[in-house]
Structure formats: C-alpha cells, structure tokens
Design a protein around this nucleic acid. Structure first.
Lengths: 250, 250
DNA sequence: ATGGTTTTGATTGTTTTTGATTGATTTGTG
DNA sequence: CACAAATCAATCAAAAACAATCAAAACCAT
C-alpha cells in the first residue's frame, strides 16, 4: 500500500470515528506500528490531525461534532447508507444543492466523476467537494458557529442566484402531520428556499428523526421525497401515503 | 505501445484508482520499470500527477497546501507586521470586509475583542474568525480551488447585501500609473466591488508587490490607502503623491 | 540499406522506506 | 505515591524503490 493511500485511510478512519487508537490504524492498514507512528507524525505536521497518547484524534474543525454527543459508529454507518442511496439519484450534469449536515457530507464521495455543479450552505462540505474535484458554489450568509452552516438573509438571497435539478436536505424532525422541521428558524428558511428552487427535493433522515417534531417548519411531507433507513413497514406506511419514500436496502 | 498511448493509460489508471504502484503500471503497459519511471518523471513535470515512493498518485492534496501557508518565515513576518498595522485602523463596532489572502488572514488575531462584523470571500479565513469569536459573514460565490477564494457573480452579488466601514484587500500588483492589479479578472471584480461598498479601503501589499503590474485592474491608486512595509523613501514617494501610504514602523 | 537519433530495458550503486528492538515516558491502578 | 502496563521516540539493519548509466533495439530521413 502506497503512502498517500495509507495516510488517506488514516484520515478517513479518523473522520468517521473522531478518535482512533494506534492499533486500529495498524489493523486497518496492515502496516507496522512504526510506520503508522511516522504517518501520524507527518499528518500532524500538516495540521491534519492531532496525535494523542495511544492514537490520534481529529482537529476540532468540526464544531458540530463537539456539541453533539459521541455518535456511534453504527449511526455513521446508517448515514453512509442513506448518503449512498441519495447520491444514486444524481445524474451526470445535474445542478445540485447540498444542505449543511453530516449526512449530506457523506454523499460527497459517491458524487465524484459525475461532472456536477454543487451549491451548498455547509462550509464543512467544501473541502470534501474540492478534494473530489467537484465544482462548488457557496450560498453566502452568516456563519453559524456551532455547525458552520450559512444561514440568514445572506444565505437565502444567495440561493436565489441558482436553480437546482435536485436538492438534498437534512432535517431534525419528520412527522406525518407536521411535515419536516428543524430547530433553528434561520436554517429552516434556508432549507425551504432551497426546496422551492429545486425541481426535485430529497429529505435525508435516519430512523431516529421519524415521528419527531422540532420548532421550525421546513415544508410539508409531500414537498420532498424521503430517504431513510427505517425498515419497519408500520413506521413508514403513514409516510408512504403522503410522499415518495426511499428506504436503504437492508 | 506508443509513448502517448502508454502515458494516457497511466493517467487513466491513476484517475480510476487515485494511487497506483509502479509495478501495476508495468503490468498494465507491458513496459519496463525504467520506462514507466521515465514516464512518471515526464508526467510529473507536466503537473499531471504526483510521484510517490512506490508509484504515483493524483494531485489533489490541496488541503495540505492550504492548511499550512508554507511561506518563508521572513515573508510571513513581513505579512504579520503589515497585518498588525492594518488591524490597528479598525474601530470597535466596525463592519469590515476582509479579502481572501494570507495577509488579511494574519489580521484576524489582532481583531478580536473589538466587537466587529466581518464579511469575507476567503473560506480559509472563516475558521480563524470563528476561533477568535468574530461574527463572520460569507459573500457566497464559486469556490476557486487553488486559493479557496469565492469569486464570480455569486460573490459580487453577495457583496451587495452589505455596506462596509472599512475593507482590506490584497493585490498582486501596485503601480504608480496602473494602480492596483491582480491576475484573476474574476477576483479583480470582487475586490473592486468590495471597494465600492466601503467608506474606507486599504490595500495590503508587501514591498515585492510595488511597481508590479498584473493582468486585471482592481482600482486606481487613490481609491484606497496603501499599507506596506517598504521603507525606502525613493520607492514610495511616487505613491505618496497619489494616495495615503502607511508604512510599518521599522 | 545506412548513419544518426531516440527510445527502451538491464545493471549499477545510492537513497528511502519499513519493521523490529531498545530504553525512556506516560497513563492507569491500587 | 509507587508500580505495572502501555505507549512512545530513537535507532538500526534489511528490503524496496530509486536515479544514473549504458548498450541494444527501434525508429527516422536520406
């Protein structure tokens, strides 16, 4: 395994798990302890991670993660499955809006080589988009510290410069009667604006978001298709009555 | 197999796999190790790939370049001095535009505790702004891969949402007759727009930029004050005739 | 064909990377 | 606080990969 590949694997692992033990790196890469140590040393010099006793941890670029209590690997795995399914709807040449959020972030690796134009209000997504050689546009707006999402009038007015074939949004609440909701009203406005400018809209929400309601309404159920990992037919039948529901293959 | 064909195959393989071992190239092309090495050498010179020990990888390690501005320390020291002087003109409560660039980046540490509102088109500046607890707004626009600056119509139209007390811009060329210039026309438009929306504008340019001219005009000399580290009176007297010049204390 | 040029592949000695080993440092636990 | 276990940095030799060199093969124009 070549050095860049190994180091990328290290960074990927770190991104998934926040902190990773040295031994886990060894196992994942089939390299020796010494080699991993040397890699970590180099990557730390490049400011791409932070070494800690026993392994390494991500640099605290993603404040989002800090505020949210430790996500389990299982949860991430769910997100990735949803992300992969979501990305499969994207066609070559599409103009796409990607909402700020971890699930939309996970879509990016599945989007390369599609010659897309992507607009986003998630600053955390930009590096990944650039790395995957995807043309990226930013909405503009106020930088919300906690999540590095762009919100406010600057974001909505920035959105009006564009029209989307598809938009992919994350929300915190999905409910049969109250529709899609999210806690921050400013974010809700951005999401619903993006939705309004899209031919097709997709809401990405793992099963924990179902039947939840939060403060600000984004849209009614039927305004967007729902992509989820909930397999329990009883829990999604109500949604299927009102909108198209895509479920990750189990 | 002809050389161009072989080299194309190398590039194709690389594009598919991100990183490829030398031996894999040998196998795929039926050429000798030496030949492949020579090919890789040539392709690297043409900036089409990056050689690594054991093979080659595509060049997309943009992030490392960006995260660490690996300028010479002396150069950095100059920038910091200019940045400090520039920041000293900022008053509590100001609304400020910060251009993308390394010098403006260096201003940020000197800006905290001033209760400012900052608008920027430099994605690299945002983390630093957040870290220093400064309210940050982003213009929006197209993400220029190399510098992570936001440019294009999205950036200029985003700018029109705001009015600035002061704006701080970097340029590549400063000339007594041709004024302020920068290589990328798209960037020049953003800069001059920001300038137009500011009560006061400051151009930050170390001595290496003086008497230089690049492709796209940003503004005439008298449209902004000049902040530089050039101490040689002969070299700056011409500028002083046309605009206000601030020189870092030696 | 023939002389000259370019490309190729093998060989050389040199450099880089790697993994094991060492003793030092840190961490957790009683 | 002290001890044991784990982790660390530093060092070294082996292995892999490297650049440089050179002769043979392929190519080219005459």
């Amino acid at each position: 395994m070549l050095t860049p590949q190994r180091q990328q694997l290290i960074l990927d692992l770190l991104h998934d798990q926040q902190t990773v033990k040295l031994h886990e790196f060894v196992q994942a890469t089939n390299a020796s302890e010494s080699t991993i140590r040397r890699d970590l040393q180099q990557l730390e010099e490049k400011n791409l991670l932070k070494r800690v006793h026993g392994g390494a941890s991500i640099l605290h670029q993603k404040r989002e993660e800090l505020s949210i209590p430790e996500k389990s690997t299982k949860n991430l795995q769910q997100k990735k499955q949803i992300a992969m399914l979501a990305a499969s709807f994207i066609r070559d040449g599409d103009c796409v809006f990607l909402d700020a959020g971890t699930t939309t972030y996970e879509m990016i690796p599945y989007m390369k080589d599609k010659h897309l134009t992507v607009v986003t209000n998630g600053l955390s997504l930009i590096d990944a988009l650039i790395d995957h050689n995807i043309e990226a546009y930013v909405t503009g707006g106020f930088v919300k510290h906690k999540t590095r999402a762009l919100i406010g009038s600057g974001a909505t007015s920035g959105l009006t410069n564009y029209r989307f074939d598809k938009s992919f949004l994350g929300v915190n609440g999905i409910h049969p009667f109250y529709g899609y909701t999210t806690p921050d009203p400013e974010e809700a406005v951005v999401k619903s604006t993006a939705l309004a400018y899209s031919q097709e809209a997709f809401i990405l929400g793992d099963s924990s978001k179902l039947n939840e309601v939060t403060f600000s309404k984004v849209a009614d159920l039927d305004m967007a298709q729902l992509i989820t990992n909930e397999e329990n037919e009883d829990r999604i039948s109500l949604y299927k009555e009102k909108t198209t529901v895509k479920v990750v293959s189990p």
